[in-house]
Design a binder for these strands. Structure first.
Lengths: 273, 273
DNA sequence: TTGCGTTGCGAACAGCGTTCGCGCAGGGTG
DNA sequence: CACCCTGCGCGAACGCTGTTCGCAACGCAA
């Protein structure tokens, strides 16, 4: 069954323990433990040398294992990167949800049951503050983890396309949902206005295109607005993290980011003047 | 002198012909020719497999050369990538300057003397159209050359920092200048307003920080505005090129980009209402 | 205890970037 | 014309990488 297991996990990029194996045995616990250690070591490596520099043999040395031994847990280097990408999106999603006020501590191990941040319908003025908070969290996580940011948003792995139902896009969807929540809340109470920024209504995407990602039955006009806001945040952060304006505009990155975020709040009708 | 030549060129990453060598000999012409062919082959490789997948041996096979032979022209793989980055920025700058109305055809070989687009002071209403044009050119070049976009703006080469006076930042400066020109023109005629987007004037960077990049004596307030506008363009393009919203918002990318660009024109005071 | 499935390892293969030393051929100088 | 010298290209080699294969040892259930 080992080969079939590996073939199944090829889509996810990591060989998880099979379901029929008792997940409670001492064996299974040890396997989970080394799988977590493996990802931790690989993440440390990525933090030090970047995604392109990750070497399986180096990870194996860190763990005191043989290079071949890693292949009991990983089906290829790209598979390991894929697992790290999924974890990275989950980590970013954790920070965004924490900033949204989910309360509690951010889970430090990656065995997460998706805390399901509740939707806040009331408190109109609060929605701007929530979008501010999630935007600033997006930036702070990114500048604090530049190599992971590059892993998530930099050059995609050549020739690799994430399976639509894989853990990568599931984790990215969770992050996108956290990013979108303030906008969805604002739209729910009718405070989101798209006419300022989308004068041409033809920009609206196909209705229901984003449904599976966020919530069913959302206003199809909120999708473009979300993408627009995300693009604005992401542009500033991307330029900053990859160091392009750093040699050109040393210390004003955060202030500039705040200013653009504030203007975006205005453009979306979430602040009064 | 060959070793000294290589050591000198280590900063630039490519072994250009020395100046004392007669640049007119048949030898020198052959060398320039193979150097151009080498970069063309490497660029083709980058277009196919991405920056991370570029292999010197594969480039050598393309040229019918030995892998070791390449080292007469290149001092390392990262050096070749650096040369390609510089060329990429020049190519992007060409497209931006062409969109700015420099007229004429875009030079196809990389032996360029920086055509020096003239500054247009008059024609107030024209400045919005020029910023529109350069923004759309930024996007069209990027989506047409996704792997080169990743080369220029994706994960930086691990452990590599471009020398401040190297050809890389010179080429990037040229691109930045083209991107900035409409804003500088608008500022010159007093049509650029920063109060809408920068309510807090403390965002202004250190005066003169961007002087060497653009033109001496520019208004220090235009720097943050330029970076803000660039960030907005770049965010949309980066998300689109790296495929993040593609599976989520299939065909509206260009329309959304235009809408955000239009709103940016409004935020900068370049369109009337 | 017996047997099976899982786990790790050593060895090996192909491919990579990079270095070294050699031979050859072109070009400037007597 | 003959000379030497410089630059060019190559073959071989080293150490590194990802990946595969077969074998030995171990946990666990029957």
């Amino acid at each position: 069954m080992s080969s079939a297991d590996t073939a199944d996990a090829a889509a996810t990029g990591a060989t998880e323990p099979t379901a029929d194996t008792a997940s409670t045995g001492r064996r299974a616990r040890a396997r989970r433990r080394t799988w977590i250690d493996l990802k931790a070591a690989a993440l440390e490596e990525v933090r030090e040398v970047g995604p392109a520099g990750l070497a399986l043999r180096s990870v194996a040395r860190r763990l005191g294992m043989s290079p071949a031994g890693l292949y009991r847990y990983v089906d290829s280097r790209d598979g390991l990167l894929t697992a790290l990408i999924a974890d990275g999106f989950h980590d970013l999603a954790d920070h965004l949800e924490f900033a949204l006020g989910a309360g509690g501590e951010v889970a430090t191990d990656r065995e997460r049951p998706a805390p399901e941040v509740p939707m806040r319908a009331g408190a109109d003025a609060d929605v701007a503050e929530r979008l501010r908070a999630v935007g600033l969290a997006y930036r702070s996580w990114s500048v604090a983890h530049p190599n992971e940011f590059g892993l998530l948003f930099g050059d995609p792995i050549p020739g690799y396309a994430a399976p639509a139902d894989g853990p990568t896009v599931e984790a990215m969807t969770r992050m996108g949902a956290a990013l979108a929540r303030p906008l969805l809340e604002a739209a729910a109470v009718g405070r989101l206005r798209g006419d300022r920024v989308l004068s041409d209504p033809s920009v609206a995407g196909p209705p229901g295109a984003m449904d599976p990602l966020l919530a069913p039955g959302i206003d199809p006009a909120v999708g473009p607005l979300l993408l627009l806001a995300w693009g604005r945040l992401h542009g500033q952060v991307s330029l900053e993290v990859f160091g392009h304006p750093h040699w050109l505009f040393p210390d004003g990155c955060e202030a500039l980011f705040r200013a653009d975020l504030e203007r975006t709040l205005h453009d979306l009708g979430l602040v009064t003047p």
